[in-house]
């Protein structure tokens, strides 16, 4: 083996930490999504938009849909989470949020390992994803 090939075939510690956290977050998010979806479609929790009206809503553009259904964009769904349809957003937010947590988790691991550049990269990535998640950025609508 050459000198370079003697480097470990194993994943680095931060990679393992990231993978383990990602795995747990993904399973938890999926589980929550499935449970909340069944609560929604089987009518156990009352939806905000009646189920019979849904086929009318998804033919509209998003601006019309929000206006027609009187729904606010961004994190307003949190205030409506007691409705069956909006309850599903907990699982969706978990799936879309787990990567942010993973990056925040590996920052101290990288820093402790002396890999300060990648620790900064990790923090920067978490900030970028956090900015996207914050709801500050708007698509404008059409």
């Amino acid at each position: 083996m050459t000198e370079s090939s003697q480097r470990s075939l194993q994943a680095t510690p931060e990679q393992i930490v990231y993978a383990n956290l990602l795995e747990k977050g993904m399973y938890l998010g999926l589980l929550i999504l499935l449970v909340t979806y069944f609560l929604y479609v089987f009518g156990i929790l009352k939806p905000y938009i009646p189920l019979n009206d849904i086929p009318k809503c998804w033919t509209m553009g998003v601006s019309d849909y929000l206006h027609h259904c009187n729904i606010q964009s961004g994190w307003a769904w949190v205030r409506m989470v007691y409705y069956g349809d909006f309850l599903n957003f907990i699982g969706i937010a978990m799936l879309a949020g787990v990567t942010i947590v993973c990056f925040l988790r590996i920052v101290p691991v990288l820093w402790k390992d002396g890999d300060k550049l990648y620790a900064c990269f990790g923090l920067l990535e978490a900030l970028i994803l956090g900015l996207a998640a914050s709801g500050i950025l708007s698509g404008g609508g059409h």
């Binding site: 979806y37 929604y40 479609v41 189920l51 849904i54 809503c57 998804w58 998003v62 849909y65 929000l66 729904i71 964009s73 961004g74 994190w75 349809d85 599903n88 957003f89 969706i92 937010a93 879309a96 996207a132 998640a133 709801g135 950025l137 708007s138 698509g139 609508g141």
Partner: peptide, 11 residues
Amino acid sequence: IYVNNGCVIPM
């Protein structure tokens, strides 16, 4: 961005 702009219908 899509979630925050209301482009997600769980159904």
